[in-house]
Design a protein around this nucleic acid. Structure first.
Lengths: 225, 225
DNA sequence: ACCTGAACACCGTTCAAGT
DNA sequence: ACCTGAACACCGTTCAAGT
C-alpha cells in the first residue's frame, strides 16, 4: 500500500478516454498521413486492445471526423480579428486554408463530409462579415454559401496536392516543373491559353492564387448591393 | 470447322483489353458506388483472373483515374456552345457539375488527383472564354485558376453530399430538414446569421447556388478590367 | 503474350472471455 | 464498466504455373 515502493512503469497509467484516443489518432495522422492511422497502430501506441478503442469510439469514420473537428475548432478559435471586415475575412479564409495545408488529412475528411458542426462558426463569421460589408440580406445566403464553398473547395484540393507531394516524395518545385513541362508540350494551336500559362504555372503560389480568387469573389459580392 | 455447329456460349469470346476493363469498372462504380469496385467483382464480371487485369492496368488507382478521365473527357466533348461567352461558360461549368453529381465517384477521384490531363480542355476553354470577356492578360491566369478551382471544388463537395445521401439512403428533403433542424437549434444569440438562414437552407438548391456563385465570380472578374 | 487462381500481407470489426 | 486479443470477413496485390 506504500506509495512508490515499486518503480513506476513507463506505461500509461491513466485510463483510456475518447479524448486520448482522438489525440493519438491526430498524432498518427499528422506524422504519417491517412494511411498511418490504423486500428493496429492505435492499439500499439495506446498499449491496449481493439475492443477498448471501440468502447469509446463508434468506428474509424467517427474517429476521423472527431479528429478533423478538433483541428477545425482549434484554428477557428485562434483566428485573428481586425477592424476591417475585409481583412478579417481574408485572415479567416487563409487560416482555414493553412490549417488544411498543414493537416492534409483534414482536407480528405472535409471532402468526405463537407458539412460538420465545427464549420458552423466559420459560416457564422463569414455571414457576419458580409453583413458588415453591407451585403443586402437578400443576397447574403448565396454569397456566404459561395464563399464557404470556395474556401473549403480550394483548401480541400490544395490538401490533395499536398498529400500527393508527400506520397511521391517529390518536392513542389520539381512537381511544378514537371507539370509545366507537360503544359509546354501540348499543341499550341489547340491549347493556346494553356501554352501561354506555362511560365505562370511554374512560378505561381497556391496560397496567393487562393487569396487572389478571394478578392475576385469579394469584388463580385460588392456589386450585389 | 463449320461455322455455328456448336451453340455460342454466352461467355465473352473477345480478349481482354484495358478499354474493356475500364468500361466494366465504370459500370460497377456507377451502379454501386466506390465500394462496388473491387478486383474480385471485376474478375467475376469479366470472368477472368486477377493477373489478367493486372496485365492491362497498373493498379486500382490507375483504374480509377482512367475511368474518371473517361467521364470527364466525355462531358467536355459534349459541352454545348453558345454565341455568348458568358452563357457558354455557365454551360461548361454546369456540365462538369452535373457530370460529377451523376457520377459521384468521379468527385472522389478528382479530390484525390485534382489535376488530370483530361481537365486541360476545361482550363483551356475557361481561359478562352475569359479572354472573350475581355479579362486582361495580366489577370487571366489567376482568374482562370480561381474559376477552375471553384467549379471543381464545389462539384467535388456536392459529390460528397451525393455519396453521403446514397450511402445513408435518406433523401435530400429529409437530409435538409435534419440540417435545418440542427441549425434552428443553435443559440440565436451566438449564431444569429446561421439562425436566420434556416429557411433558405431548407429551400435552397445546390445547383442554383453553384450558378449564383459563378455569377458572383463573373461580376468580380468584370471589375478587373 | 496472355491468363489462372491460390496465397500473402494487410485492413476494420466483432465478441467470448477476462478483470 | 472497461478491457483483451484471437478470429472473421474482407481488401489489393503477387507470382509460380499454365496455355
Amino acid at each position: 500500500m506504500g506509495k512508490n515502493t515499486a518503480p513506476r512503469s513507463p506505461r500509461r497509467t491513466d485510463s483510456l478516454s475518447r479524448e486520448l484516443i482522438i489525440r493519438s489518432a491526430t498524432e498518427l495522422l499528422d506524422s504519417g498521413g491517412e494511411s498511418a492511422l490504423t486500428l493496429r497502430a492505435l492499439t500499439v501506441r495506446l498499449s491496449t486492445g481493439y475492443g477498448a478503442i471501440y468502447h469509446h469510439v463508434a468506428d474509424k469514420g467517427d474517429l476521423l471526423a472527431a479528429a478533423a473537428d478538433d483541428v477545425i475548432t482549434r484554428v477557428l478559435a485562434g483566428a485573428a480579428l481586425d477592424d476591417d471586415p475585409r481583412e478579417t475575412l481574408r485572415r479567416l479564409a487563409v487560416g482555414l486554408f493553412d490549417a488544411v495545408d498543414a493537416h492534409p488529412w483534414v482536407g480528405a475528411e472535409l471532402s468526405r463530409q463537407p458539412w460538420r458542426p465545427a464549420l458552423l462558426d466559420f459560416y457564422e463569421s463569414i455571414a457576419r462579415l458580409l453583413n458588415a460589408l453591407d451585403v443586402p440580406e437578400r443576397a447574403r445566403f448565396d454569397a456566404a454559401g459561395t464563399l464557404t464553398n470556395y474556401v473549403l473547395g480550394v483548401a480541400v484540393q490544395n490538401a490533395a496536392n499536398a498529400r500527393y507531394l508527400a506520397d511521391t516524395e517529390t518536392d513542389r518545385a520539381s512537381f511544378l516543373d514537371n507539370a509545366a513541362a507537360q503544359w509546354a508540350q501540348v499543341d499550341p494551336a489547340r491549347y493556346p491559353f494553356v501554352h501561354a500559362s506555362v511560365t505562370q504555372l511554374r512560378e505561381h503560389d497556391d496560397r496567393e492564387q487562393f487569396l487572389a480568387g478571394l478578392d475576385i469573389f469579394l469584388a463580385g459580392i460588392a456589386t450585389l448591393t
